[in-house]
Write a protein that binds this DNA or RNA. Structure first.
Lengths: 247, 247
DNA sequence: CGCCTATTTGATCTGATTCAAACAATGTGG
DNA sequence: CCACATTGTTTGAATCAGATCAAATAGGCG
């Protein structure tokens, strides 16, 4: 059950790609990241990595797979806050917020690299540039949350779906998980519904509309964008909030 | 037009109270905060402090008044992301995200203390504890955004309003802006609508219901909580996400 | 193959929006 | 300090986007 070398290497690559997409890393900082000691583990899909209320002692890096952060509402409904590709550090905030106020789970089988808080704290103490990159990452995280508030609070259900597809297209591209106009988006319609505050039935109908209007195609876990400009317009998408470095 | 000494002193006090509510500050760190050089300014209500797209060179501390962060949706609708009392540093993220992806504005006349980025960067370099406190503050900010996503995405309109009243009660208390069960909440129903993703008309009806059921009373800018337990239940409120230090 | 999980479609219902108008409160200048 | 303008609140009626309920169909996968 130990990780094939290639998975670990590719995961570390995406970690570097992700950070480079939001910050200029020096080559020595890049080396530190590549050398970061990790406990590597595989998790099946639908499993919690950390759960609401826990006090984790490590952060997790996504080496492969697709995760989400979510919280379950008293009446049993799940709200997905954000989605995470390989390269992301989705629970960085646990470094300074001891107790989880939400859960982190796999949406597909995933390979994860666990880094103890103590190790991370030592690294950011020695490499202030990496600290700044990580702080910036958590701030972009917050910007993504703000956009989600706007998405759910103000946009029509049709636009909400289009917006998610635009955002994830940009983020997939940052870590080279796209293939031309196609990219990996292993979300069920139920997941999409939980992310956009809609019902699965209504997601299905809006998806049908997006397909009918030839903006996208979706086959299994692959989403193909057929008309980027039209999708951007439909989702009222402006990538500024993702704060990418000029690429 | 210069700030009365008392307003500045009280504002700095609330800044310290706010940070102490989320972090343990040493007395030397407290002194640094109290001595932080600021350019103090008064702003009328309804004015932008920083606007979407700008590249501010300073952060602002709220010394007195009530602010909101918001973004205007293409069709002209405003989404309010968060509300800010005296003691808050609502645009700390501009330290690491150069370009604003939303706006910050006054909801009441306000006194603000502007601190240049360079000054802040120097301070957090010399006082790593303050840096950690500020990082933690931005992380709690993100937690508040997550809760707003859950609020708008999953809760009924009645619960949404109740939830906002609970959150703001806790936050007002942290900086001593409450008076027993009453606290300052200078929001119009339009502001509340823009914050909760509802229409003003519907906010009005839900407010009437909260009053009819004797959970709250609202007179002008003061909100009085008549039945805290019932309000918490109505809003499905759990303060864990605010990550307050044990008080 | 057969089970389980997801997707699709149709019919009905409802919470919230929209439109409209009256009313109250607040602020401003003469 | 009052007249008037402006902004915010309240109420009613019509309408609609999206939810709910139900059932059929299609895909994965052991």
């Amino acid at each position: 059950l130990s990780a094939p070398r290639s998975i670990e290497a590719e995961g570390r690559n995406r970690l570097v790609l992700k950070l480079q997409s939001i910050f200029s890393l020096s080559s020595s900082d890049e080396q530190r990241i590549r050398a970061l000691p990790m406990r590597i583990e595989r998790l099946a899909k639908g499993r919690d990595i950390v759960s609401d209320g826990e006090r984790p002692k490590e952060c997790c890096a996504v080496l492969e797979g697709f995760l989400c952060r979510y919280k379950v509402h008293p009446e049993g409904r799940r709200q997905i806050f954000s989605l995470h590709y390989a390269g992301d550090l989705p629970d960085l905030q646990s470094l300074y917020l001891r107790r989880m106020d939400h859960s982190l789970a796999t949406l597909t089988p995933a390979w994860l690299g666990y880094v103890p808080h103590a190790v991370l704290l030592r690294m950011i103490d020695k490499a202030p540039h990496i600290r700044d990159a990580l702080w910036r990452d958590t701030l972009i995280d917050a910007a993504i949350f703000r956009e989600a508030i706007l998405n759910i609070g103000q946009r029509s259900s049709y636009a909400r779906i289009a917006h998610v597809f635009c955002e994830m297209a940009v983020r997939a591209k940052s870590v080279r998980l796209n293939d031309g106009n196609s990219y990996l988006l292993p979300l069920t319609q139920i997941d999409l519904a939980d992310h956009t505050g809609m019902t699965p039935v209504h997601v299905n109908r809006m998806l049908a509309k997006l397909r009918a209007e030839k903006l996208i195609a979706k086959r299994g876990r692959t989403l193909t964008i057929l008309d980027w400009d039209a999708l951007v317009e439909a989702g009222e998408f402006d990538a500024a909030y993702l704060h990418r470095q000029l690429q």
